[in-house]
Design a protein around this nucleic acid. Structure first.
Lengths: 155, 155
DNA sequence: AAAGATTGATCTGTCAATCTTG
DNA sequence: CAAGATTGACAGATCAATCTTT
């Protein structure tokens, strides 16, 4: 059996991407755990925090956070139980539900942010000089725009 | 409450990283599913395929693939049930178990690779010109080397 | 006692089915 | 009937506990 593909350059790039992501998120998750948040919970809170009115429909939030709608239902269940998010029904479309960030939710995510920034600074941006950082960010944005056309739904 | 951190540049970079990764792996996973493999299974098979003797100890394989040892036990259980991997006990240390890639396992991962390469080419390398690709790969390697010091255990 | 591997309990996410509203 | 959201059943991974070998 020919196995040249096992060493293919593009597969190597993919491997680096996967390993860098896994290593970095392990550090980020450990940091977030100090503030009682999981990756998925942080993802939801920060997206609500950045939105006008600090609220999004469940469906839009699910698309942005790249989870299924049922997965989002469960994340929001947990966040609501902690008082970090509230559900309110959409006035203009009674099928819909808005997830709304509470004051406590905003405080929680803001409390977690300095630690997250520190990890990113130490293990990512701090390892690259200015032009490298710019090139890296540009490449990521190019890829993101291609593979996640609906990542900004509702915002 | 001050919320300037919500728009911090480094958090934005992190967001791009997470979204690019999520979008890309969704495409890769769909492609791999056509060959009956999950992400974790592919990860294990390709690492065995690249190793001398096509075998690794469970502990080393777990470190490389960034899963817990119990998680690896379960992945190898499934792969063994499909005949893609075999367990053999280490001759020199009877506590250890080697996971060995079978001929069928090698064929399976090689069959899946062209599709993976195609996805990477189309949604990552193909979107960047030569110097951008080189810079992107270099940055990823820098980050990976920092955050995953044990990613090459046993090889 | 420590290391390698596995197992039971549990947690988190998905898919398919269901309920409500448009 | 389609869209938004939720629920039950289930798949995949982790942690803590256990067993064997060093």
């Amino acid at each position: 059996v020919s196995d040249a593909l096992l060493r293919d350059e593009r597969i190597t790039t993919l491997g680096l991407f996967v390993e860098a992501y896994a290593g970095l998120t392990a550090l980020l998750d450990a940091q977030m755990a100090l503030h009682g948040l999981s990756h998925a919970e942080f993802e939801v809170l920060i997206r609500l925090g950045r939105t006008n009115g600090r609220r999004l429909r469940m469906t839009d939030l699910a698309k942005q956070a790249a989870v299924s709608t049922s997965g989002l239902t469960r994340v929001v269940d947990r966040l609501e139980a902690q008082g970090l998010v509230e559900r309110t029904s959409c006035p203009e479309d009674r099928r819909g539900t808005n997830a709304v960030l509470t004051e406590a939710g905003l405080e929680r995510v803001i409390a977690a942010l300095p630690g997250q920034v520190e990890v990113v600074e130490r293990w990512l941006t701090g390892l690259l000089d200015e032009p490298e950082q710019a090139a890296f960010t540009r490449a990521l944005r190019t890829i993101r725009d291609a593979v996640r056309p609906d990542a900004t739904s509702g915002s």
